[in-house]
């Protein structure tokens, strides 16, 4: 390992004309041993199984982020609305499942019921608040949705208080896969990834292959023309918004048994989701997927390898992407 990194650094250095001079080669040589030492130091304790577990965790986190971020990016791409309250939907979803679990004691029933409630909440918010802002400045949208966050967070405190709650993993999924003698991977985490994959595939199908998806795409690329073709764009917006709310809520619901339910959980995921869609390019669902996976893996590995800087890594990644491509990976150039 050490030798190879050294070798590549030297080769890369030699290819650049500026490094032909022996003296200016020195700074290029320096990172070689440093890199190999540091990567050896950090990667050595990680054997293949641990590595695999981290990859699975990263992918699962990435899928969860994708559910939240895809709603956010659709709402922005199609309606032109920056929805800061999107993280609150994630939180509401989690709390709804916690509350419904107390009544039904069945995770699947709770999630189904909670999704229905989320759709209604999303619809109501779009009709009574967001729909007044379509012609306004981004500034006003940011502000109004900031106000919504304050309201939702406080409602949560009134209804459920500021305690941490946990949601039980259902019996069928409580087992785990045995990877080695000592390491196991819980079924429920695999289930999360699987469900998210299903939802992502479903979204891909609906947006790419159905008439509804055609209308949504048309609305995103040219609002006026779509309206001129006789399509009620207002209801289209309402639908997209409530679907986005339900997606974010679903992420909160399905993640509740793993992450537990606590105040402020929405704010955390909101900021990360913004990083995701900015990296992917605002308005692009494909970008949201790639961004979510990048962030999911970077964050998971960051926490294992550089625990002190883990929280900063995702923002650094975003800064680098934006320096290189200001419109994000899959964004349309402004």
């Amino acid at each position: 390992m050490r030798k190879r990194v050294y070798f590549f650094t030297v080769r890369a250095g030699l290819r650049l004309p500026a490094f032909r001079d022996k003296r200016s080669l020195a700074p290029a040589l320096l990172p070689g041993p440093l890199c190999s030492l540091s990567s050896g130091y950090f990667l050595l304790p990680m054997d293949f199984t641990t590595f695999l577990i981290q990859v699975l965790n990263g992918v699962q986190y990435g899928f969860m982020l994708f559910l939240v971020a895809s709603g956010l990016t659709l709402i922005f791409g199609i309606m032109g609305i920056i929805n800061l309250a999107h993280g609150a939907f994630y939180m509401i979803g989690a709390y709804l499942v916690y509350w419904l679990m107390g009544i039904t004691d069945n995770l699947f029933v709770s999630i189904t019921a909670a999704i229905a409630i989320m759709l209604v909440i999303g619809l109501a918010i779009e009709r009574f608040a967001i729909s007044f802002l379509y012609h306004r400045d981004h500034l006003h949208q940011v502000l109004l949705t900031y106000g919504l966050i304050l309201i939702f967070n406080e409602m949560q405190k009134i209804l459920w208080g500021s305690d941490f709650y946990s949601v039980r993993v259902p019996e069928i999924l409580s087992g785990s896969v045995r990877l080695t003698e000592t390491l196991v991977y819980p079924h429920y985490r695999l289930f999360i990834s699987f469900m998210c994959m299903l939802v992502a595939a479903g979204m891909y199908f609906v947006i790419g292959r159905t008439k509804l998806g055609m209308i949504i795409r048309a609305g995103a690329s040219n609002r006026e023309m779509t309206r001129a073709l006789g399509i009620n764009i207002g209801w289209n917006f309402a639908l997209v918004f409530s679907l986005g709310a339900a997606l974010a809520g679903f992420a909160g619901m399905i993640g509740a048994p793993v992450s537990s339910v606590y105040p402020g959980m929405g704010n955390q995921i909101l900021i990360i989701s913004f990083v995701v869609i900015v990296i992917g390019g605002i308005g692009s669902v494909k970008g949201a997927f790639v961004g979510a996976m990048l962030i999911g893996l970077a964050d998971t590995f960051g926490q294992v390898l550089f625990p002190e800087f883990a929280a900063m890594i995702v923002y650094l990644l975003m800064a680098f992407v934006l320096m290189w491509r200001p419109q994000g990976l899959f964004g349309k150039p402004a």
Binding site: F76, I82, V142, V278, A311, Y315, M318, L322
Partner: peptide
């Protein structure tokens, strides 16, 4: 870095840098 972007991206990237500093001190 920020002035290279505009509109929504500017909003988000300023937020990201502030969060970076936040976590640094946190």
């Amino acid at each position: 870095i920020c002035v290279r972007t505009s509109g929504v991206y500017f909003i988000m990237i300023t937020l990201a840098f502030a969060q970076m500093l936040y976590y640094f001190f946190n």
